[in-house]
């Protein structure tokens, strides 16, 4: 009995090694650390992790605010910006909103622009 174990060990080892090598599926990940550092493993594939909802929403709204304001000029937004306590913020808001407004519809936004500029200055 004690002789059979050492003799059987190489056979078990070879069988196990063949199983391990033959069964490998290198294309699919099973751990996050199988992927590059910037990626994570999801459903067997390395993909970029989703951006946090708060940051994505904030950056998206910041990036989309000027075009939306230009396409759909809203006096309420200008009034809100002018009501901000910070003078710098008001100046920035006035710059952003003043530029697209004359191009898009100068007739509609004449009075809000006038309202915004004194507050910003």
């Amino acid at each position: 009995m004690s002789r059979s174990l050492p003799l059987a060990s190489p056979v078990v080892l070879l069988a196990f090694a063949a199983l391990a090598w033959g069964a490998c599926d290198g294309e699919r990940c099973i751990r996050h650390s199988d992927c590059a550092s910037a990626l994570e493993c999801r459903i067997g594939r390395c993909v970029a992790p989703p951006a946090p909802a708060v940051d994505g929403g904030a950056s998206g709204s910041d990036a989309s605010t000027p075009p939306d304001a230009g396409a759909n000029p809203d006096a309420g937004e200008i009034a809100d910006a002018a009501a901000d306590a910070s003078a710098d913020a008001a100046v920035d808001a006035g710059d952003l909103d003043a530029a697209p407004d004359p191009d898009a519809s100068p007739d509609l936004d004449a009075s809000p622009d006038l309202d915004a500029s004194p507050d910003g200055g």
């Binding site: 196990f16 199983l19 391990a20 490998c24 599926d25 290198g26 990940c29 099973i30 459903i43 067997g44």
Partner: peptide, 19 residues
Amino acid sequence: GSGLSLGGTGSADVASHRT
């Protein structure tokens, strides 16, 4: 040591890697 690593990749789907 080394060996065989198994992990689920979805519904009843298992992928294997060398450990």
